[in-house]
């Protein structure tokens, strides 16, 4: 009885999440959480060495981070080049756009090999963090 109740709760949670991640063309049209993200928190995630990791590969308009990467294009102007919907898919799973990309899939757990035990079954960012990053990138306009 208890288990059945739990199962129903899990299903109730799982179904909207699955629907939210629907890919349409080169974009994910709706927020993963149903809520808009917070650009301030998104900036902190992008700048962080152990959360977003973005500046390992990218450079961006984050002056206090002296060490930035040059494996990938600058994030400056990303919000002019792409819509929030397109940015969302890029962060969730860039391999959907470019199968050879080196950009990590930030919101996918399937199809990964030999993931370290403490990260198994976990996404790099949570749904809320992805939305925060998308909100921040959208503010980066040329």
């Amino acid at each position: 009885m208890w288990n059945l109740a739990l199962l129903l709760v899990v299903l109730a949670l799982a179904v909207p999440a699955a629907r939210a991640q629907q890919v349409v063309g080169d974009a994910i049209p709706t927020s993963l959480t149903g809520q808009p993200g917070d650009a301030g928190r998104g900036r902190a995630i992008v700048a962080s060495r152990n959360l977003g990791l973005c500046l390992l590969c990218h450079s961006g308009p984050i002056a206090e981070e002296r060490f930035q990467g040059n494996l990938a294009p600058s994030l400056a102007g990303a919000g002019s080049r792409w819509s929030e919907e397109q940015l969302r898919l890029r962060i969730v799973d860039g391999a959907r756009l470019n199968p050879d990309t080196i950009m990590p899939p930030y919101y996918r757990t399937g199809g990964l090999q030999r993931v370290a035990r403490n990260f198994q079954g976990k996404t790099i960012l949570s749904a809320g963090q992805v939305e925060d990053v998308v909100a921040y990138l959208a503010t980066l306009r040329d």
Binding site: R49, L53, L55, L56, C57, R66, F67, Q68, G69, N70, L71, A95, I102, P104, P105, L112, Q113, R114, V115, A116, F119, K122, I124
Partner: peptide, 25 residues
């Protein structure tokens, strides 16, 4: 082979991107 949560191969960094900067390194 790609591996890990970041889904990268050794070759992605050391063959394809050697000489570039990973953050400051």
């Amino acid at each position: 082979a790609r591996q890990g949560q970041l889904n990268l191969s050794c070759a992605a960094c050391h063959d394809d991107n050697a000489g570039k900067k990973l953050a400051g390194v």
